[in-house]
């Protein structure tokens, strides 16, 4: 069988975000394999370890995405395919190009992150599945293969459900799916020699984006930071807090 993880490179959540001229500037930011995609990479490696076959990483993004792809290869994926395009391309447009690569690769199971840490989007997995005419399951917390199908547990708005899905299918990740491994030193050495095939997005018919980002700004709300010391008299502090919430903030 063949398993694919669709990955992206995003800024580390802990690193500061800068905006220059109304656009986010990632210069100097630490860029990493999206943590939600780490679950996807881990899952395809586990599937390969359990059932045999090939674990392939696929991405759509700028040239630098290769770094994140090397991380996935160091974790244990076999090879990568990178569709290159500079600048913002919306997930629905990306889905069309990714679907073409997946048609060629013909995997049985595809995993990708439940939400991307830069776009704050949840669309990619479902959009690629739709472009392929495949089913998809979002926010997957448990997964197993059984006789040509997959059985998965996934989160809904409230509660969760267990589904049985015909393959090929796409699954998006949720925390709890697995515990991603760290790349080992031998893994990192091997990853340097693993194949990454690059395809220009234009060759797959991508010209522009349906959605354009016009302006970005840092959005941090000013907080009042009225902090009461309640270490000695907790009851008095609680009374003062509730009074402030009632009379000043008017939220109670």
């Amino acid at each position: 069988m063949k398993y694919v993880a669709i990955i992206r490179q995003v800024p580390d959540g802990e690193s500061k975000i800068k905006v220059d001229g109304g656009r986010v500037n990632l210069e100097g930011a630490t860029l990493i394999l999206d943590q939600m995609d780490e679950y996807a990479v881990e899952q395809i490696i586990r599937l390969k370890e359990a059932h045999g076959g090939e674990a392939v990483v696929v991405a759509f993004g700028p040239e630098r995405t290769e770094e994140a792809m090397r991380t996935a290869l160091a974790m244990g994926a076999d090879r990568g395919v990178l569709i290159t395009a500079e600048g913002y391309v919306d997930p629905v447009t990306q889905a069309g190009a990714l679907a073409k690569v997946l048609t060629e690769e013909a995997p049985d199971v595809v995993f990708t992150g439940g939400q991307q840490a830069d776009w704050d989007s949840q669309a990619l997995g479902a959009a690629v599945a739709e472009a392929l005419g495949w089913p998809s399951v979002t926010w997957t917390t448990a997964f197993e293969l059984e006789d040509g199908h997959a059985k998965a547990t996934h989160d809904l708005d409230e509660g969760a459900e267990v589904v049985r899905v015909a393959l090929p299918a796409i699954f998006t990740t949720q925390q709890g799916l697995n515990e991603p491994r760290y790349p080992t030193l031998p893994g990192i050495m091997k990853a340097k020699k693993k194949e990454i095939k690059k395809i220009d997005a234009a060759e797959l018919g991508v010209s522009g984006s349906k959605v354009e980002i016009l302006e970005q700004q840092i959005m941090e709300l000013e907080r009042k930071q009225k902090i009461i010391d309640g270490t000695k008299e907790p009851a008095a502090a609680a009374a003062e807090l509730i009074k402030l919430l009632h009379e000043e903030a008017k939220v109670l």
Binding site: K224, Q225, I227, P234, A235
Partner: peptide, 24 residues
């Protein structure tokens, strides 16, 4: 969290929260 806070109490939640419940 206090950098992201409008109204805060520094204290033990096990003492402060029961008092908050009574006040509400």
């Amino acid at each position: 969290i206090f950098k992201e806070t409008d109204y805060g109490v520094v204290g033990d939640v096990h003492q402060v929260l029961p008092a908050m419940i009574e006040e509400v």
